[in-house]
Amino acid sequence: MTRPENIIVLKDLYKHFGEVRALDGVNLNVAQGKVIVVIGPSGSGKSTMLRCINHLEAPTSGEVWIDGQQLGKNEKELNEIRTEVGMVFQLFNLFPHLTALENVMIAQKVVRGRSKSEARKIAMDQLNRVGIPEKADVHPSNLSGGQQQRVAIARALAMNPKIMLFDEPTSALDPEMIKEVLDVMLDLAKEGMTMVCVTHEMGFARSAADEVIFMDNGQIVEHTTPHDLYNNPKEERTKLFLSQILQH
């Protein structure tokens, strides 16, 4: 099998919640190693699109392809594909009954079938990578928001994913903690990880993103480079949104 050109392919994706059209015909190709930043007003379908990529949300219709494999209804296949797609959530969603280290170990043991010592070694490596090895034995409730989010990133990375999805990873953080999380994300981007990030951190988009997507009303309105999006947006809706968030 030849390697597909695009590691993520979304084709005619629709997602309806009752009357609400959260996704209204989304098409997207993401090449290996690219960093995509998704922006847009709340309710525009950014998160829903992200959650469709790993089928936490099953789309109403349309196709999702990950690394040449189409996501379907088969739970077992879905579980396998999800191990290749790491996800980081706005509210961290760390497992509160486990220490930071155990948070990073659990899925390795349960899903990947790694031995305890192997999982521990990989977990420590990942905690080192995100810069908090000293918090290994601390429970999430005793960590700051920034530290929790970094553990969450380590937890996803420990599965050796090919793709990382970030769902507003810094929106729930105090301002002084945003940088430590963005720094980790920047390092990841430099290392060539394929990333799709829903975020309004414009600095991150400028320095790390290969492409920026502006979404509104469940559709991709504009898909271009960060430079073009910020300097000469083509669509009226994009201009309006940017003027609103860049005002201050």
């Binding site: 790993n54 739970e75 579980n79 999800r82 191990t83 899925a107």
Partner: peptide
């Protein structure tokens, strides 16, 4: 919270694995 199940599933755990290792230990407590 729903996020616990979602985080577990996003790591590739099956429903049963997520129940056993993530949800039930917290729920029983």
């Amino acid at each position: 919270e729903r996020g616990q199940m979602e985080a577990a599933r996003s790591l590739g755990m099956s429903y049963g694995q997520a129940m056993r290792h993530i949800i039930l230990p917290q729920a029983v407590r």
